[in-house]
């Protein structure tokens, strides 16, 4: 079985992370922003897996499981906030929620 070079894996993780960040920064729909955050989390998880495979250690996979649960919790809180937001402001536009402007 051909072994993927570590660099490739890390590069993919970095690309995914950048795509996710870009999504957070450019999308105005808050659901897409939440999904982009998920992508960023998964990119970080991928980086852990690759690093764990590189060093032959199980730590990377443990961290991935941690990130998975963290992401689940984050989605739960995030969706609840989004529901509230839609309930109150009747919009999903993140820029419209600027009541705390200084």
């Amino acid at each position: 079985m051909a072994v993927l070079p570590t660099e490739y894996g890390l590069l993919l993780a970095a690309l995914l992370f950048a795509l996710g960040l870009l999504g957070v920064l450019v999308r105005r729909n808050i659901i897409f922003m939440l999904m982009s955050v998920e992508i960023m989390l998964n990119a970080a998880g991928l980086a852990f897996i690759v690093a764990g495979a590189r060093w032959g250690q199980a730590d990377g996979q443990i961290m991935f499981i941690l990130i998975l649960t963290l992401a689940a919790a984050e989605v739960a809180v995030g969706l609840a906030l989004i529901l509230q937001m839609y309930h109150r402001l009747a919009t999903l536009d993140a820029d419209a929620v600027s009541g705390m402007r200084g």
Binding site: L25, R28, M33, A94, D95, S98, M100, R101, G102
Partner: peptide, 18 residues
């Protein structure tokens, strides 16, 4: 000056953090 940076837009904050 400082309160001007508090735009209330979550994407700006995210960009700042990044």
């Amino acid at each position: 000056l400082l309160s001007w940076t508090q735009t209330g837009r979550v994407r700006w904050y995210a960009a700042g953090i990044a």
